[in-house]
Amino acid sequence: MISVKNLVKSYNNVPVVKDVSFEVNKGELVGLLGPNGAGKTTIMRILTCFLNPTSGEVNINGMNIFDSPIEIKKLIGYLPEHTPQYGDMTTIEYLNFISEVRGIDKNKIKSSIDEMIKLTSLEDVVSKKISELSKGYQKRVGLASVMIHDPEILILDEPTTGLDPNQVITFRKMLRRLSEKKTVILSTHVLSEIEATCERVIIIKKGTIVANDTLQNLVNNFTDEFIEFSLKADNFTEIDKEISKLKGAWKLEFMKKDAKDIFRYKALISKDSDFDKNLKDLIKEKNWKLIDEKRNKANLEEIFLKLAGEEE
């Protein structure tokens, strides 16, 4: 089990992770979701003992990251962002090096490597230099290298960037299969990644956790709605100016022109917002015509936007 308590990390006195606490239970597959620069990588680097926190406590299987870094590193397979590798080595040499450092029994190294090569379909590039491989293959070499010692915990930083859509699907299948036996933490700034793989999501914004729940609960508990409406009016410049001044929506955007004089908008509002009333008043005042209006419960994408996106 991974337990993080009041974690703070500052670089030159600028905090990038601010008082973060969470737990990940054995066998869980948790996604760290947040825009770039939210602090996901920093948190992962602390969990993997690459960085020390400025303050706070991290325990993995009851071991403290300060007291037993080596023991903790043995439990973890960590794939850093951008998958750094020794480009001069061939795939097989690299996997050999990792196996040796991971202390895999000499007699089992070959079979472990073969198994990983099969799992990540690396058969064609076994004796090629890593620097000559495509991004997708490099990622797969990275994945093979972090799983070779059959770690209890996998920590994957942006594991699918650089993979093509087919590889992403294969990767997700693999991940779901693995997560039956392993604890997995993966980070991403792509929501669909989480939707496709994770049971629980921790949304991070500017170094703090803004949500930590299962996807189902997030959707259920989130009462915001979005309104899609179209207006008939003569002058787009005027309408756009007036609409953008309306109060009560935390996100408002022009979607498209339905016809020459019909304009479609989308607004995200919280449940008790008076946006609807404001809109109706404005329409009356300006003598426009409301063509249609649809209200919908916000979906995951909008939840993410609200929680982690930049305010506008």
Binding site: T48, F50, E71, P80, P84, Q85, Y86, G87, R102
Partner: peptide, 14 residues
């Protein structure tokens, strides 16, 4: 420069 330091330092090596 290559980022491999992160790799090396997150392996169970002193």
């Amino acid at each position: 420069n290559d980022g491999t330091l992160e790799l090396l330092f997150t392996l169970p090596l002193n």
